[in-house]
């Protein structure tokens, strides 16, 4: 009986670590739905989830881009969230897909993790994320050398949550 009690307490004791390590559950796709579970949604109830929201597994030092279509007459809110293993700040840029002009850069906005804007011209934008730091993958020069990446120290999930709503009319 005592042994059973001890076993129970051991299980309870390790439960937080098991929960914490859920991101290493390989029965589900890594980072799947991370943006839904981890990013903070707007307090504005009129915002709806945009289907271009996504999440992915990133390595320290990695940069990646995703294309998003935005439409005139809508307000958008793009927010980021990531596993703390990837650092405490992240580079986030929005570029015009055609002209490649930088429309927003969070390094000029105190590395904000969300950006809200009104669209006055429909276009495709590129959302570019840059993870700070470096890993064995980012340091390698594409040679066919063996690369070992430490999953517990160099990789983590990143979520990009996109919300949209019709731009509220001003005045009567």
């Amino acid at each position: 009986m005592n042994l059973l009690k001890s076993l129970l307490i051991v299980v309870i004791g390790i439960l937080p670590f098991v929960v914490n390590a859920q991101s290493n559950n390989y029965k589900v796709r890594k980072c799947f739905g991370y943006q839904r579970d981890s990013c903070t949604t707007s307090a504005n109830i009129f915002y709806k989830l945009n289907e271009d929201s996504r999440s992915a597994l990133f390595v320290k030092g990695q940069s990646s881009q995703t294309i998003v279509s935005i439409y005139n007459g809508r307000d958008y809110r793009i927010s980021l969230c990531w596993d703390h293993i990837l650092g405490n700040r992240m580079g986030f840029k929005i570029l015009d897909r055609e002209t490649k002009n930088v429309l927003y850069d969070n390094s000029t906005d105190e590395f904000a993790t969300d950006f809200e804007f009104t669209v006055t011209q429909s276009r495709d934008i590129i959302v570019e994320l840059s993870i700070p730091g470096e890993s064995t993958l980012s340091k390698s020069e594409g040679n066919e050398e063996l690369i070992i990446i430490r999953k517990d120290k160099e990789m983590g999930c990143v979520g990009v949550l996109i919300e949209h709503m019709i731009t509220p009319t001003k005045g009567f």
């Binding site: 005592n2 042994l3 009690k5 001890s6 307490i9 051991v10 309870i12 004791g13 937080p16 670590f17």
Partner: peptide, 23 residues
Amino acid sequence: MTFSMKIITNNILLLVFVSICNI
């Protein structure tokens, strides 16, 4: 202190530590 008591004490301490870390 019996062996099982030691385990119980250790695990309670572990739980307290994890809770403090989370808070």
